[in-house]
Design a binder for these strands. Structure first.
Lengths: 248, 248
DNA sequence: CGGCTGATTGATCCCGGTCAAATGAGGTGG
DNA sequence: CCACCTCATTTGACCGGGATCAATCAGCCG
């Protein structure tokens, strides 16, 4: 499917999300929409969009698919430091720094909009509310980053994986990607292991433990959480860091 | 010592640091200086300046002392998610979110400037370069946050502690707090344990291991790193995430 | 059917947690 | 000045969560 056949509905997640962060005027939504449409891009699964050390010259807004930010150590150990879901954006403002400190890759095929810096700055200058929305995007992403530090530093494996699943649910819900108690889980166990700081083997066993406790159902690339509150208890989940997702 | 007797030299770290992030005009430095002087505050060691869930209505710029951002789990487990050193600031822009997702506490007695939101916004509006400098401050802090995720998720204890010490050195150096190969280390081993996701006992043993390898000397609240490059090798340290500290 | 990637299982090891106690180092009051 | 208290550091013993290595199984694709 060529890009030209994509209709404007692909922009929905991004517009909905930014509008949740800051209620946008009709004009703001319109100018956002046209900026997004100008830079539409596709990528396959497992592609690096930008690498550690690269200069940043554009803002990317994800429209579909799962991406991640990651860093690797010399000897190959990889840590996924955050996921990026539809509606979220990469590196608003990051071009203020000379180069990027981490890499961004697709975990699934993805559609995103690549807005070049001058275009983005024009967009921000044209509507202060929109600028605030992108600023909030950055702040929320940093709050998530802090919670990941807690997850990696102080939760044991079961809590850690449970917490990740709770967070994924809460982040996917406002962009309409959670259906009842299920969402897709399009990534490999290796990816989940790298996000939780566990080995693949132990991640697999942790999943089985969560299954045995009936806290999750995970098969056919679909994650079902029959009782989200129960999972949150198991995860020692405290929702305050994601508050902005619950506004809409 | 009452605040009135503090002379302007206490502002040096903050001005120097922001000037490193973005070269500031003389006027920008002057207006920054007066804003900082207006809100001078002192705090003892171990005080919470703001707690998770509190609304944010001001920006704090640290002038002396060590602070930390931390989060706790219900059962008391604590994770320090970042340190805040002299010259750095807390929560520029954080007032855009309804409440704070983490707590900030002093680890030592501290002096800081508390700039109320309207005052801060006036300051930003008056000089775009200054606004960019604070924006960079936020971006660098987020980059550090990501590196901490790698540290907690993928480095073993010795590497982890070594990495923390390398980072502390690199962050303290540009504000003049590293003397040759030494800096003060005013925090307890409990604090270091909470920052590295280790238990106090194991942190203590890890310190001994680093001492035995002659990678550090730590006594009398002073940390000496005889060979920083060697410590960086042991830490699998990659400097890219702190690039902005090396500009000045 | 063979090759490949991802999920799963088994066996073993060790890093780092936990519990408990000892040692030091201020700080305070008699 | 010393006795005492508190907090931080250090040590010892033991245990267990999670890593590692290796093999097997299950889809999927050409």
């Amino acid at each position: 499917m060529p890009l030209s056949t994509l209709d404007r509905s692909v922009l929905e997640p991004a517009i909905r999300r930014l509008n949740t962060l800051r209620p946008l005027s009709a004009e703001a939504r319109a100018s956002l929409q046209s900026a997004l449409l100008e830079g539409l891009q596709r990528a396959g699964a497992g592609e690096d969009l930008i690498n550690e050390g690269d200069p940043v010259d554009s803002v990317r807004v994800v429209l579909s698919g799962w991406l991640c930010r990651y860093k690797t150590l010399e000897d190959g150990r990889r840590q996924i430091v955050n996921f990026i879901f539809p509606g979220e954006s990469c590196d608003a403002h990051a071009f203020l720094l000379p180069t990027l400190d981490h890499s961004i890759a697709t975990l699934t095929p993805a559609v995103y909009s690549d807005i070049k810096r001058p275009r983005f700055e024009r967009l921000m200058a044209g509507d202060p509310t929109l600028a605030e929305a992108f600023q909030c995007e950055t702040l929320v992403s940093t709050a998530i980053q802090r919670e990941w530090a807690v997850n990696l530093g102080r939760r044991v494996a079961v809590e850690r994986v449970a917490h990740l699943f709770c967070e994924i649910f809460e982040r996917l819900r406002p962009v309409g990607m959670v259906d009842r108690s299920s969402c897709i889980m399009p990534v490999t166990q290796m990816d989940l292991a790298d996000a939780t700081g566990l080995s693949v083997v132990h991640l697999n066993r942790t999943l089985q433990e969560l299954r045995a406790a009936s806290l999750i159902v995970l098969r056919d690339r679909t994650l079902t959480i029959p009782d989200l509150d129960a999972l949150k208890v198991a995860a020692l989940y405290s929702p305050s860091y994601l508050q902005l997702y619950r506004r809409g």
